[in-house]
Design a protein around this nucleic acid. Structure first.
Lengths: 177, 177
DNA sequence: TCGAACTAGTCAATATCTGAACTAGTTTCC
DNA sequence: GGAAACTAGTTCAGATATTGACTAGTTCGA
């Protein structure tokens, strides 16, 4: 049997509840760690979902497709494996996505001159035009998200997140292949 | 033609490159916003992937299944729609996941007494035991991630992320249903 | 009180991601 | 010079997500 929980329990109430029960009833020691990572994932999910729904889906583009085009746009002609590393996707995902984007005429796949196994992805004229155009809207919406923080707060946030990312190496974390 | 880019361009070099080109060549105004959100997503992806690979997959559990069990564990018997709200998944995803977890005997689905349309998800004895056990390992690994930050830094990080999450309401962002 | 509008959950179709197997080209080193 | 080990990319099967349609129960108002 349970107390009738509020049907409208929201994210913060849940975090508070989790903190309380994990420490109080079960004696887990690292409540703050749980809170940090729950909040991190939540923030990331919300931002990603919003940008995808507001900017990219209406143009018929998936979030992943945008990320791939984004890194190819800025990091120049790029091997699929490099694109996978920068986006954090698997090589298989890049391969599948690229197939569609090549068919749509946004991406070009040219064989590497030096290494016959390899391939370079680059933007076509149409791909470049689309990125410049779509990023205008993307960037405005990003700014909408971060505007609630001062510039100093934004820099601190980046610094703390960077620390977290770097720290994982010492912690022998697993990486995507 | 392009300068031969370093084949081992890493995440930070990419962020630096993106900043430079977006502002310099294209004149986009909100570089810092882009940097904040790129870093946020990256950190979240790395942490999630690591916890899934190190703690949950070896036990045959997906990240989503863990999240669902986690909210049901702590927020008590819960309707699928409430679980969807807390985890950030769609109702359909909760429904599918729950089907499997009920079949495995970790989750119980009982009809709601008041509302004939509704259902309440709760942990079975086995489900509860598994959560207590698996969370021990999960929490240790979470602590490994956050240990690179001082307690004060962790609190600041949570505060900044909370601000970001709250801010989105004023920005009329879209939410998951 | 009865029908219209609404809400909860599930199902079906589609999309995408992952890991593993596979193909093909390159490097190593005896 | 050539076989073995390695590496890049693709393909395939399986898992899991999303949206939208659908079923069933509830609520509200004429």
């Amino acid at each position: 049997m349970s107390v009738s929980e509020p049907a409208d329990l929201d994210f913060w109430s849940f975090v508070a509840l989790a903190n309380e029960r994990l420490a109080g009833e079960y004696g887990f020691r690292h409540q703050l760690a749980t809170e940090v990572l729950l909040t991190l994932n939540r923030a990331s999910d919300l931002v990603t979902y919003d940008l995808e729904a507001a900017v990219h889906r209406p143009r018929g583009r998936s979030w992943s497709a945008f990320r791939l085009l984004f890194v190819v746009w800025l990091a120049g002609p790029l091997e699929p494996s490099g694109a996978a590393r920068l986006t954090g996707m698997s090589r298989a995902a890049v391969s599948n996505l690229a197939k569609g984007l090549v068919a749509e005429g946004l991406l070009a796949r040219t064989p590497d001159e030096r290494d016959g196994r390899s391939v370079r992805l680059s933007l076509t004229g149409a791909g470049h035009a689309e990125m410049v155009d779509v990023f205008r809207e993307h960037n405005e919406r990003e700014a909408g998200w971060t505007a609630v923080l001062t510039e100093a707060e934004q820099r601190i946030l980046v610094m703390l997140l960077d620390k977290l990312i770097i720290g994982h190496r010492e912690f022998e974390a697993r990486n995507r292949r």
